[in-house]
Amino acid sequence: MSTPTPSHVFQANLTPARRRESLIFGLFGGATYLVLLCGALVFGTIIFKGAGTVFQAKAPFINTSFLLDAPESLHVFQFEGKKMELGDRAFRLFQAEHPEVAKLKQESYIYSAGGIFPCIVGTLLLVVGSMTIALTLGVSAAIYLNEYARDGMFIRFIRLAILNLAGVPSIVFGLFGFGMFVIFFGWNVSLIAGWFTLAFMVLPVVITASEESLKAVPKGFREGSLALGATKWQTIRKNVLPYALPGILTSSILGIARVAGETAPIMFTAAYVVRDKLPWQVDKFSDFFFQGVMALPYHIYVVSSKIPQNEYTERVQYGTAFVFLVLVAMIATTSIILRNHLRNRYKW
């Protein structure tokens, strides 16, 4: 075949610039798909391995024991030729019926049976409490910075401080919380110490995002309100904050994921390796705030690195991670629905 002669003036031909272009696009596209692949692998592994723990083949198809029971030790032994895997409670009942079991060779694996109910409850409590504190403080600060404060050296310094705070590693927040709340305030390892530590950790994100949301509310709404004889606070409360709320909620979704997921800030301040009592099983109401809790991320840490590994612990690890992902997704979905609801109500 002879070299193709251009059939018309716009005939496409492969110039070096064009070749370079396809190469560059290929690289950019490749990078994007690589990220996607990584994400898919992470989620895929956890779902694939975790689903086996959380779901089961027979009705009700969900392993309710895993979701609703406390962690137990797993006892594995041979009994009359059969391999038995029993949780602590079941094992005790079994032993009462068959006293000879005590003489059998059996292995026990810590935390590998039962469920993770206390961890789910603990994480939910930590999220709700710390987000309440973070939103209250963060939105207040954002209102002050955006609506009241006059721009000056001091305000610029505060903003810089907030940005820096956002870059502080979470373990440092954990140590701060330990020194400040657990030791100095004497709150011990408790829900309230964890709340404040986590709240301080997400505060920069909440403040920055809330400020952006407040800024996005058109100036005309403020002026219109002030021109009708509203005070500044009336204007903010009735005619600025409601419209900024969807944006603030969006930021808090990110905050929720972080608060729920961070292990370092709670490992010294709020998390117990194991606790038999559930958080509402307290003698008096004030004790509620001063009790430590189990938490999902910390439980994952414990079962993955603090106890001997074997095939049984793996089920708990992936099961917990799976539940954890679903939980965060559920909280985030709730926030997104709430946000969209608000957004539709106040559209401009």
């Binding site: 219109g224 002030l226 021109a227 005070t231």
Partner: peptide, 20 residues
């Protein structure tokens, strides 16, 4: 200034009905 603005109302260049 609140009293003043009750007495001296204003209509702006860009119409600004509130999203209510």
């Amino acid at each position: 200034v609140i009293e003043l603005r009750k007495q001296v109302g204003m209509v702006f260049q860009k119409s600004n009905p509130f999203p209510k």
